[in-house]
């Protein structure tokens, strides 16, 4: 397996969470609850449309010891955040 492919494997989300329509703090609360149900090392993909949460979720996830792998703008008002669980 090539390096790049291995990276992609490691970043492959095991779970997708759609929190479009939710506002802070429920955006993070929902994301955190989803992470709690996952194993360390697993990756969560979060789809959201609340602009403030695009900054807040990655910051809070880092504060809680999780690894933010990417934040992508995927539409006019849609973002995808990918986080790997590092800590229970």
């Amino acid at each position: 397996m090539g390096e790049e492919q291995k990276m992609q494997e490691e970043e492959k989300p095991v779970r997708k969470l759609d929190i479009k329509g939710l506002v802070c703090p429920y955006t993070f609360v929902k994301a955190k609850l989803a992470m709690e149900d996952m194993e360390v090392g697993e990756v969560l993909e979060i789809v959201l449309d609340y602009p403030e949460a695009v900054n807040n979720i990655p910051k809070s996830m880092q504060d809680h010891g999780q690894k933010v792998l990417k934040v992508d703008k995927t539409g006019d008002k849609e973002w995808v955040i990918v986080v790997r669980k590092e800590k229970d």
Binding site: Y26, F28, K30, K32, D63
Partner: peptide, 17 residues
């Protein structure tokens, strides 16, 4: 419940668990 307990769930020492 997610709304009612959100300030607890956010705390690392409490959380959903």
């Amino acid at each position: 419940q997610v709304q009612r307990y959100s300030r607890h769930i956010i705390l690392p020492e409490v959380g959903g668990k």
